[in-house]
Computed example of a mutant assay.
Amino acid sequence: MRRYLGPLLFGIVGCAILVALGVWQLQRAEWKAGLLADIQRGIDAPPGPLPAAVDPSLKYHPVTVSGTTTGDELLVLGGTRESGGGYRILSGFVTDEGRRIMLDRGFVPEDARHAPRPPTALRVEGNLHWPDETGSATPAPNRAENIWFARDVPAMAAALGAEPVLVVASRVTGDAQGVSPIPVGIEGIPNNHLGYAVQWFGLAVVWAGMTAALIWRIRQRRF
């Protein structure tokens, strides 16, 4: 019996650790789901005026702004399931209070890239946003073609001569000039903890199987 004790204890402890990690990931999945629900409730809350002081702690904060686009815009390469490839349009926007900010107006298809979009008065409901889209593999903007490959609030604000404040439109009143809003959502925020839990539980099953196989081999040698 002593021959089995070491492998058995090793197997039990290993399985217990792996199962505990799986349970922890299930708890993390529940926590992340609650966090995402809170974010969505914040996104869907009634919009208010643009705060005087804006910083990333106000990410997703719903606002209403009225003003006029400047005619200056940056194109961010992207696409939608419905329309295929195209561009996000980020415009300079001067509010009725005189603040020059940035407005993510939404999407245009490829063939509307060069369509004229002169200054126009708009009333916009949307959300403040600081997209986390840039990384080491993100190409630098093609300034000659005015094409960007990710939204980068500080760099785009400098290019448009605006405050580093980005409002992503969800509803536009006025001449949208063929631009379709893409509201902020939680779809791009991952919650992979359930998958991690399945992996840990799967490893626990494998560990238990390996332990059983080892004990069986020890028993076979005995005979």
Results as ranks from 00 to 15, higher is better:
Arg2Ile: 06
Arg3Tyr: 13
Tyr4Asp: 14
Tyr4Lys: 06
Leu8His: 07
Phe10Ser: 15
Phe10Cys: 15
Gly11Pro: 06
Gly11Lys: 05
Ile12Gly: 13
Ile12Lys: 13
Cys15Trp: 10
Ala16Ser: 14
Leu18His: 04
Leu21Thr: 09
Gly22Val: 02
Trp24Arg: 09
Gln25Val: 02
Gln27Thr: 05
Arg28Lys: 12
Glu30Gln: 13
Ala33Trp: 11
Ala33Glu: 12
Leu36Val: 07
Gly42Gln: 14
Gly42Asp: 12
Ile43Ala: 07
Ala45Tyr: 11
Pro46Leu: 13
Pro46Gln: 14
Pro46Cys: 13
Pro47Ser: 08
Leu50Asn: 03
Ala52Gln: 15
Val54Asn: 14
Val54Ile: 15
Asp55Cys: 08
Pro56Gln: 11
Leu58Ile: 10
His61Trp: 14
Pro62Asp: 14
Pro62Arg: 08
Val63Gln: 00
Thr64Asn: 11
Val65Asp: 06
Gly67Gln: 00
Asp72Lys: 07
Glu73Ala: 06
Leu74Tyr: 02
Leu74Val: 03
Gly78Met: 12
Gly79Tyr: 04
Arg81Met: 06
Ile89Trp: 01
Ser91Thr: 11
Gly92Lys: 02
Val94Leu: 08
Thr95Ile: 06
Gly98Phe: 01
Arg99Phe: 02
Arg99Thr: 15
Arg99Ala: 09
Met102Pro: 02
Met102Ile: 01
Met102Gly: 00
Leu103Lys: 01
Phe107Met: 04
Asp111Asn: 15
Ala115Ile: 09
Pro118Ser: 09
Pro119Tyr: 07
Val124Thr: 06
Leu128Asn: 07
Pro131Ile: 00
Pro131Val: 00
Asp132Tyr: 03
Glu133Thr: 02
Ala137Asn: 02
Ala137Trp: 00
Ala137Ile: 00
Ala137Lys: 00
Ala140Trp: 04
Asn146Gly: 11
Asn146Val: 08
Trp148Ala: 01
Asp152Gln: 05
Val153Gly: 02
Met156Glu: 00
Ala157Leu: 06
Ala158Asp: 09
Ala158Ser: 14
Ala159Met: 01
Ala159His: 03
Ala162Lys: 01
Glu163Ser: 03
Pro164Gly: 04
Pro164Ile: 05
Val165Ile: 11
Val165His: 05
Val167Glu: 09
Ser170Glu: 10
Arg171Gly: 09
Gly174Leu: 04
Asp175His: 08
Ala176Ile: 14
Ala176Phe: 11
Ala176Thr: 12
Gln177Asn: 15
Gln177Tyr: 07
Gln177Phe: 14
Gly178Tyr: 10
Val179Gly: 11
Ser180Ile: 06
Pro181Leu: 04
Ile182Met: 14
Val184Trp: 11
Ile186Thr: 15
Glu187Cys: 10
Glu187Gln: 06
Gly188Ile: 08
Ile189Tyr: 13
Asn191Cys: 08
Asn192Glu: 11
Gly195Cys: 12
Tyr196Leu: 01
Leu203Gly: 15
Ala204Asp: 12
Val205Arg: 09
Gly209Asn: 01
Ala212Trp: 10
Ala212Thr: 09
Ile215Ala: 13
Ile215Asn: 05
Trp216His: 14
Arg217Ser: 13
Ile218Arg: 10
Phe223Glu: 11
Phe223Arg: 06
